[in-house]
């Protein structure tokens, strides 16, 4: 097959080192009390790392346009799962119309 993209090893190493640095930051931040901001930072770093893995290690950056579309579709479906499930949990207490065991 001619459409296989060969990625230079340099890039893999760079991505790997970035992931390691981000991991170190995650550990470091765990020792600093930022209040609610801790979660934001942790999740932000996690998303950044996942994005690197998906783009470079999983080659989504190098595929045809269909490949990022499929990947984005997967995340969109995850959003449906989270969003609709939260629509239940967040609205259970509204206007006192929650379920008996929530009151």
């Amino acid at each position: 097959m001619s459409d296989i993209h060969v990625v230079p090893v340099k890039i893999y190493v760079a991505v790997f080192l970035t992931l390691m640095v981000l991991t170190a930051i995650t550990v470091a931040v765990a020792f600093v009390d930022l209040g609610a901001l801790n979660n934001v930072v942790m999740l932000g770093i996690a998303v950044a790392k996942a994005t690197l893995v998906v783009l470079f290690f999983m080659h989504v950056k190098y595929g045809t346009r269909l490949v990022p579309l499929v990947a984005a579709g997967g995340f969109f479906w995850l959003l449906i799962l989270f969003g609709f499930t939260l629509s239940d949990y967040l609205s259970r207490g509204w206007l006192g119309a929650g379920t008996p065991w929530m009151r």
């Binding site: 449906i80 609709f84 929530m102």
Partner: peptide, 22 residues
């Protein structure tokens, strides 16, 4: 088909608002 699953949960303790939407 992915947007309707809560119709299995109308009497489960699910929020009535979510139930109505589903």
């Amino acid at each position: 088909g992915f947007l309707v699953w809560g119709h299995h949960m109308f009497v489960s303790g699910q929020s009535v608002y979510a139930g109505t939407a589903f």
